[in-house]
Computed example of a mutant assay.
Amino acid sequence: MNFVRLALFFPLFHLINGNATKSLWDEDEEEQAQSPILRIHHINIFGDSRYMKAWSHVDDSRTQFGITASLREQLGSNFLTFNIKLRVRASGREVFVTLLQMRDLDLCGFFTEFSKNPMMKYFLHSEMQLSEIIACPVRVGNYTLKNVSAKDIYPQVLQNGTYKFFVEVIEATAEKVFALQVTTDIRVPSAPE
């Protein structure tokens, strides 16, 4: 199952299983008191210097971030994969547990499907502001992704705690080309401590 279908599957699965409550991110007045309070702690970003230089920026509210990558060498002539992992350390706990892990996803396949999906293109151009649609091979140049809200990378159902979201891109030679880790503290006002 490819990444886009999987990403769309989780909310649908949530509704099918009879849990039709609104997302905590909904902005109805009744739900405002339930909305998670989040703060991006820090972002670690790595771009292999042979291929790129990468930076991240967290806005003053600590709820959104941006990524800039200056690609020095074309990528995608070899097979590219990516891994995603989401971990949480619940409040009062010492150990992080993995909530979601997907490995060896086809990055070029994702770009191909993404470029054919008008809804995804609209979302990334209107909400997150992707500087340009990326396709394989990924050309030399500068790429930016702005206004990424922490709520865009975390699930709808949350508990109080510290969350770590990881993404890494790996070339067929098993070389890590790019890696990103976003660490966020999330507090849900109605959740027990």
Rank of each mutant, 00 (worst) to 15 (best):
R5H: 15
V95P: 00
Q64F: 02
Y143N: 02
F10Q: 12
S56V: 09
L15D: 12
H14M: 14
T162S: 03
F178N: 03
V148Y: 01
G76D: 08
R93S: 07
D28Q: 15
T184G: 09
G76M: 04
V169N: 00
N117L: 11
W55G: 07
L100M: 06
K116T: 09
V4I: 14
V97L: 06
S23E: 07
K116A: 10
R139E: 01
S70L: 15
S115P: 01
R103V: 02
F10A: 11
Y163L: 00
T21A: 05
F166P: 00
E113D: 10
T63E: 13
S126F: 06
Y122N: 13
E193Q: 09
F65S: 09
F79H: 11
S70M: 15
H41A: 11
L107V: 08
G66Y: 10
F13Q: 07
V88T: 00
N2A: 06
I37V: 14
R62F: 05
V88G: 00
H125E: 12
L130Q: 09
C108E: 00
G47K: 14
A150D: 03
V177S: 10
V157A: 04
I37W: 10
V182K: 07
R72A: 12
G76K: 03
C136N: 12
R89Q: 00
G109W: 00
P155V: 05
P189N: 08
A135S: 10
V169P: 01
N142H: 07
D185H: 01
L80T: 07
L145F: 05
I40Y: 01
Q181G: 02
F9Y: 13
E175F: 05
P36C: 05
V88E: 01
S70R: 15
Q74H: 06
V58M: 02
Y154A: 03
Q159D: 09
H42G: 08
V138M: 10
M52S: 15
L99K: 02
R72W: 09
T144N: 02
H42L: 07
T173Q: 13
I45H: 07
K22T: 11
I170P: 04
L158F: 10
A179K: 11
F46D: 01
R187D: 13
M119I: 03
D26C: 11
M102K: 08
A7W: 12
I16G: 04
N19W: 07
L6D: 06
M119Q: 02
V88Q: 02
A20I: 12
L15S: 10
S149Q: 04
W25E: 04
H125K: 12
F96T: 00
F178K: 02
H125S: 13
Y154N: 02
M119A: 04
S91R: 03
S126E: 12
L38G: 11
S126T: 10
I16T: 06
E29V: 14
Q159L: 06
E31T: 14
R103W: 02
Q101A: 04
M102C: 03
T162F: 00
E113P: 12
N83C: 03
P118I: 10
I16C: 07
P118Y: 06
H42N: 12
E193S: 11
D60H: 06
V177T: 12
S91C: 04
T81P: 01
L6G: 05
Y51N: 14
L86S: 04
Q129G: 06
S190N: 15
D106I: 01
M128A: 05
R139S: 06
F96I: 00
F13S: 05
Q129C: 08
G92N: 00
F3P: 03
A90R: 08
Q129A: 07
K176E: 08
R139I: 06
R139T: 03
K85G: 00
E27G: 14
